[in-house]
């Protein structure tokens, strides 16, 4: 069953001015339960605008968003309920920390949902354990943490609401390779333990190839492609046309192919590359 359905979503930031293009224009797609969807697109292509509709932060200029087959704007008063079911982690989420302690900050979301007492403590502790925030951090001030640790706490703050769909807007922006890997691990851990549906916006084609089941490509507010990861990345020429690219390993294999070496062109992940190269080496040794 589709957990989210987006039907001809259009959003324009200026009300009715004819000169400005819509930030998102006539986008339709649906997301199945448990999928990991990657969203890619040139800067300004409407990715952030699109995802802010999925939890009701922005209201469509026209079109509909269905969560579990129900229009989320059916009862505008209850839009806050949707926000606990569809979690959204903004870009640089560490700038939204405000509480005196790490624990209190992570508890902000679940508390807004009406949890309290033991239940609240349990849910916060569970998330901290899952994503590796140690107990000695609970009473620290979030402002005394390093950048990477702050980001982890901020992400925990959204995960603590136990959303069924969780969206990340460029979760690894501005982190070093190790930090990026850690965030990716956190996302995977959350998905494994809750079975949640995950949507990630990223500019890193490599990360997308590793993690996403399907990729949605945005171009100038329009949905350009929405397909399985392999299929999207095998359209390298098209991606380049709209200011995107394929993962670096794919480029290597395209080059090898062009040089006349007998390899597949469609290699998107490091693991696949290793597999093929090992096989190639085996062939060489036999010859």
């Amino acid at each position: 069953m589709s957990v989210l359905e987006i039907k001809s979503l259009t959003h324009s930031y200026t009300d009715g001015s004819p000169f400005i293009n819509d930030a998102v224009s006539d986008v339709s797609f649906s997301v199945e339960k448990g999928e990991i969807i990657g969203i890619i697109g040139h800067t300004g292509s409407g990715k952030s605008t699109l995802v802010q509709h999925l939890n009701g932060l922005l209201k469509p200029t026209s079109g509909e968003i269905l969560f579990e087959s129900e229009n989320i704007w059916q009862k505008p008063k209850e839009i806050r309920k949707i926000r606990s079911k569809v979690g959204l982690v903004f870009q640089y989420p560490e700038y939204q920390l405000f509480e005196e302690t790490v624990f209190a900050d992570i508890a902000f979301g679940p508390k807004n949902m009406g949890l309290s007492g033991d239940e609240l403590t349990r849910q916060v502790e569970e998330i901290c354990r899952l994503i590796g925030i140690k107990e000695e951090y609970y009473s620290k001030s979030p402002f005394d943490l390093s950048g990477g640790e702050k980001r982890r706490v901020a992400i925990a703050g959204v995960m603590a609401m136990k959303p069924e769909v969780i969206i990340f807007d460029e979760p690894t922006a501005g982190l070093d390779p190790k930090g990026r890997e850690e965030i990716t691990e956190i996302i995977k851990a959350y998905r494994e333990s809750t079975g949640a549906t995950v949507i990630i916006i990223s500019h890193s084609m490599e990360d997308m190839a590793e993690i996403a089941d399907k990729i949605l490509v945005m171009n100038k507010g329009k949905l350009e492609m929405f397909d399985e990861t392999d299929k999207v990345f095998s359209n390298g020429a098209h991606l380049k046309e709209i200011g995107l690219n394929v993962p670096t390993v794919t480029k290597v294999f395209e080059k090898l192919y062009d040089m006349g070496i007998d390899v597949e062109k469609d290699v998107f992940t490091v693991n696949k590359a290793v597999e093929i190269l090992t096989e190639l080496k085996g062939r060489d040794n036999n010859a």
Partner: peptide, 13 residues
């Protein structure tokens, strides 16, 4: 505005 949106996403009323 950004911060307001981020806190709303965490259920702030």
């Amino acid at each position: 505005e950004k911060i307001m949106n981020a806190q709303k996403a965490r259920g702030a009323d």
